[in-house]
Design a protein around this nucleic acid. Structure first.
Length: 595
RNA sequence: GGGGGCGUAGUUAAGCCAGGUUAUAACGCCGGCCUGUCACGCCGGAGGUCGCGAGUUCAAAUCUCGUCGCUCCCGCCA
């Protein structure tokens, strides 16, 4: 077989060890750095595995040495030579291959490189826009490259585990039907049927249920999903799910298999043993203690409801809120030495994001409470609040009084904000927790109707089914989320496998018989052909990788991510298309301001 | 849809609050010297639509308005 320019790669740069000393090897890679000492020249050669130092000595191999004068950073080269131990004092303990080097005999420049728009370095702080435009260069950076390789290992672990558990990998369509519930769809126009549209799947939800009815029993897929909603650091318009569905299993059994999956993945990729079984918490308890349904349980600082203690107090801001049916809740910040008066004042603007009007603070001192509210509360009230919050001298209590949802959202966010600010969040710990017993339905102010919290195929808790008519908003769902370190990483439910129950649920959320038939007729019909009891779960694969990679953004674990405007800086997508393409599809573009 | 942050040589930043001569530094780049470097060192040099557009002013990187891009958050995301 012919090699590249007469060179045959025999080893990766990062794999060179002292056991290779004396061996002839050929490395191929990129020039990380050239150090020209006039006579001796060193080149750090990098490939996907790591870096190996190559030394060029003009007295031993003059021709190879001469060619280094043309070689610059990020040139792609091949080097043949002998691995040898470095002289004793010249070893670099900070480098994996630092005890050896390649003495170059023969070199070939496989390709030159222009001067790069930025240096390939972990320390160089380059703007995201530039990084994304030259993503293929940024991916040469070891840490980003490692994230992508870690992602591969995570996917491999998932596949191995699910295969062992008897799950079958089945592909589902990408061109599918728009669903009315949930996120905005990405639409794909049909040329064959002008004026008609496919939608890209928000998840393979309906197909995996049909696979259960088909009898596949245990299905999984690592699959792309699409949602046309605004982006966040932990949200991309296209993202990857580990999608799972199984028949004849209870909620507890599905949760158990899921725990095994996640624990195995953490073990296989980063060697972390997650304690099993995972903690479990109901939705109501999560909201009560943490204000949110994705609590970060790595630290405490729980929310405490003190409405009953201040309802009758002289403090108008508290008593009036309780009088109107609102809540007063508080967190206790333990001995916050580095929380200054200025920091406390800045909390108000943080909390205003969540609709709260303000946050009130009080510091416990030897002589009683410090802070504006102290004079409005009796000794008895103060000591009761201190008792409930577990306050000691030096602690600061933060209070928010408002409508229930506002209090929970704002104080819940404040809890995390403060913990980060005061470094109360333990590093290198993973704290998984299941959240269950979500409400099946919730009131949508925007649509003025009840909507599904999860999705409309979620089964109610059995003893709550009778509430469908009398008090639908009180029904608990057989739905569950997995939260790790405050990140929702997965969620699922037991599905309705009975047509009449499904129809009742549609009715309650205002989907009429005609509409249901038009949109989900195939599923309703399928449920009548011996559909087995089934349920499943979907994990946000990108978010899981983000957690194990300790990445700050999803962009750091996706090879080619989009910007916050859902724009692909590399390909410049989305972009306009030819008039002829539009004509074929029967589409006319209305420019902004023309309509 | 709303709120915050950022935008100055190839890159990262300083200068902006308080307008005023040639916009400063580091890294990178180019040239020279250097045989044990590993962020090599030393000497010299080039490099700028201060995101874009308008306005205020004798004078704008600096002040005002608009706009574009990146980013964080709220809404939204079953």
């Amino acid at each position: 077989m012919k090699g590249i320019s007469g060179f045959y790669r025999t080893k990766y740069c990062g794999d060179v060890t002292k056991h290779d000393c004396g061996k002839e090897v050929t490395l191929m890679g990129w020039v990380q750095r050239r150090r020209d000492l006039g006579g001796l020249t060193f080149i750090d050669l990098r490939d996907r595995t790591g870096i190996c130092q190559v030394v060029f000595n003009p007295e031993i191999h003059p021709q190879a040495h001469a060619s280094t004068h043309k070689i610059k950073a990020e040139y792609c080269i091949a080097v043949e030579g002998e691995i040898r131990l470095r002289p004793k004092d010249m070893r670099n303990p900070g480098m994996r291959t630092g005890s050896v080097e390649l003495l170059a005999q023969r070199v070939s420049i496989l390709n030159e490189a222009m001067t790069l728009p930025f240096v390939i370095s972990e320390t160089a702080d380059v703007s995201d826009a530039l990084r994304l435009k030259y993503r293929y260069l940024d991916l040469r950076r070891p840490s980003l490259k490692e994230n992508i390789i870690l992602r591969h290992r995570a996917a491999r672990s998932v596949r191995q585990y699910l295969d062992k558990q008897g799950f079958i990998d089945i592909e589902t369509p990408i061109l599918t039907k728009s669903t009315p519930e949930g996120a905005r769809d990405y639409l794909v126009p049909s040329r064959v049927s002008p004026g008609q549209f496919y939608a890209l799947p928000q998840s393979p939800q309906l197909f995996k249920q049909l696979l259960m009815i088909a009898g596949f029993d245990r299905y999984y897929q690592i699959v792309k999903c699409f949602r046309d909603e605004d982006l966040r650091a932990d949200r991309q318009p296209e993202f990857t799910q580990i999608d799972i569905e199984a028949s004849f299993l209870s909620q507890a059994q599905i949760m158990d298999i899921s725990e095994g999956l996640i624990a195995t993945m953490f073990k296989d990729t980063i060697g972390v043993e997650l304690p099993r079984p995972f903690f479990k918490m109901t939705y109501n308890d999560a909201i009560r203690d943490y204000g949110v349904d994705n609590p970060d349980t790595r630290f405490s600082m729980k929310l405490h409801d003190i409405s009953d203690l201040v309802a009758e107090s002289d403090l108008e801001v508290f008593s009036s809120v309780v009088g109107r049916g609102g809540l007063v809740k508080a967190i206790n910040v333990k001995g916050p030495d580095n929380l200054k008066r200025k920091d406390l004042d800045s909390l108000a603007s943080f909390i205003s994001n969540y609709g709260a009007k303000g946050v009130i603070w009080a510091r416990a001192t030897e002589k009683g409470w410090q802070g504006s509210i102290a004079k409005f509360l009796t000794h008895n009230q103060i000591s009761k609040i201190e008792e409930r919050l577990g306050m000691e001298v030096g602690d600061i209590a933060l209070f928010v009084a408002d409508k229930k949802d506002v209090v929970n959202a704002s104080l819940g966010a404040l809890r995390v904000h403060i913990a980060n600010k005061l470094s109360l969040v333990p590093k290198d710990t993973y704290s998984p927790v299941w959240i269950s017993e979500f409400p099946l339905l919730e009131w949508s102010e925007e649509e003025q109707r009840l909507v599904s919290t999860h999705h409309p195929f979620t089964a109610p808790v059995e003893e709550d089914i009778s509430l469908l008519v009398s008090a639908p908003s009180k029904i608990r769902a057989q739905a569950y989320d997995l939260v790790i370190n405050g990140q929702e990483v997965g969620g699922g439910s037991i599905r309705i496998h009975n047509k009449s129950l499904q129809q009742q649920v549609f009715k309650v959320i205002g989907i009429g018989e005609e509409e249901a038939k038009f949109k989900f007729g195939f599923l309703l019909e399928a449920l009548e052909y011996g559909a087995p009891p089934h349920g499943g779960i979907a994990f946000g694969f990108d978010r899981l990788v983000m957690l194990i990679a300790k990445a700050a953004s999803l962009r750091d674990v996706i090879a080619f991510p989009k910007t916050q405007k859902a724009f692909c800086t590399l390909t410049q997508a989305p972009s306009p298309v030819d008039e002829t393409q539009l004509a074929e599809l029967g589409i006319k573009v209305i420019k902004k301001g023309e309509d």
